[in-house]
Simulated assay, not measured.
Amino acid sequence: MGIVKISESMHENLRVAGNALGRSINAQAEHWMKVGMLAEMHPDLDHREICRLLVQAELAGGLDLVGAINAPQGKPRAASAPKGKH
């Protein structure tokens, strides 16, 4: 764990979004970072697809960053993802 310095305006954006979505400021920041990371790594995916993959990854035990980087056909994968349709 570490400390990330952000602007006051971004902190306020995190607070508002976190409150609206029932997340802590830290949980909201982590969510945005995961979405942004996947969006940069996989520009062919839209927001809906990224969110679906995050849910699948959570159900499978968390996002596999190495798998997400090396996934075939540019699709990120979950750690120990169950077999089946993505």
Rank of each mutant, 00 (worst) to 15 (best):
S7T: 14
S7L: 06
E8V: 13
S9I: 08
S9V: 10
S9G: 03
S9H: 11
M10D: 14
M10F: 13
H11W: 12
H11F: 10
H11C: 07
E12S: 11
N13Y: 04
N13I: 09
N13L: 11
N13R: 15
L14F: 12
L14E: 00
L14H: 07
V16H: 08
V16N: 04
V16R: 10
A17R: 11
A17E: 12
G18C: 01
N19K: 13
N19Y: 02
A20T: 09
L21M: 14
L21D: 15
L21A: 14
G22S: 04
R23Y: 03
R23T: 07
S24W: 00
S24Q: 04
S24A: 02
I25G: 03
I25A: 05
N26S: 13
N26R: 11
A27C: 03
A27N: 03
Q28P: 00
Q28N: 01
A29G: 10
E30C: 01
W32I: 10
M33H: 08
M33W: 09
K34E: 11
K34V: 06
G36F: 00
G36L: 00
M37C: 07
L38N: 00
L38P: 00
A39P: 00
A39D: 03
A39L: 01
E40G: 08
M41H: 07
M41K: 05
H42T: 03
P43S: 05
P43A: 04
D44S: 14
D44W: 09
L45I: 03
D46H: 08
H47E: 14
R48E: 15
R48K: 13
I50W: 02
R52L: 13
R52K: 12
L53W: 08
L54F: 04
L54G: 02
V55I: 07
Q56S: 13
Q56A: 15
Q56R: 15
E58Q: 13
E58A: 12
E58M: 09
L59W: 08
A60L: 06
A60Y: 03
G62H: 06
L63W: 11
L63K: 05
L65E: 06
V66Y: 11
V66F: 12
G67D: 02
G67Q: 00
A68S: 15
A68M: 07
A68Y: 08
N70E: 13
N70M: 15
A71H: 11
Q73G: 11
G74L: 02
K75L: 15
P76Y: 02
R77H: 09
A78Q: 01
A78P: 01
A79H: 14
S80R: 15
S80W: 09
A81C: 09
P82K: 14
K83L: 13
G84H: 04
K85P: 08
K85E: 10
